[in-house]
């Protein structure tokens, strides 16, 4: 086992842009943005890495919160933000490339979002 030290810092949505900016200034790269649905709320993890130091920012939002895009600082963030929108239905404000729900086309809308009763596939 090679446990990595992984610090996760819960922050408010309003602080997001400022904190991400700090990471950008500090020379971190964006590893991923991932969303998890816990009950009725969504946890969004923004992971950064610099020389194998792993840091994590976590915001917890409700389904109707508009999350600001970080693609102004990390240009490549659009893939994760579009994914977050297409799979979870989270609204992201100000993406540099907005696919408007067409990045990952799914047969049911927002499959990871609100509990949609799905028919058992044969």
């Amino acid at each position: 086992m090679t446990t990595e030290e992984q610090l996760t810092m819960p922050i408010e949505v309003g602080q997001l842009i400022g904190r991400v900016e700090q990471y950008k200034q500090g020379g971190y790269r964006l590893v991923q943005i991932g969303c998890t649905k816990i009950g009725e709320v969504y946890e969004i993890n923004y992971s950064f890495d610099k020389d194998f130091v792993f840091r994590n920012l976590r915001i917890t939002v409700t389904g109707d919160t508009e999350v600001p895009s970080i693609s102004g600082m990390y240009w490549g963030a659009f893939v994760y933000e579009n994914e977050m929108h297409d799979l979870f239905g989270i609204q992201v404000r100000g993406m540099n490339i907005d696919f408007k729900g067409n990045f990952i086309r799914t047969s049911i809308k927002f499959p990871f979002g609100a509990a949609i009763p799905k028919g058992e596939q044969p």
């Binding site: 590893v31 991923q32 490549g76 994760y80």
Partner: peptide, 15 residues
């Protein structure tokens, strides 16, 4: 509760 897989190709798309 969740398994989220971030694969290398996804992050190589912006480059």
């Amino acid at each position: 509760v969740r398994s989220r897989i971030r694969t290398p190709t996804l992050t190589n798309i912006p480059p």
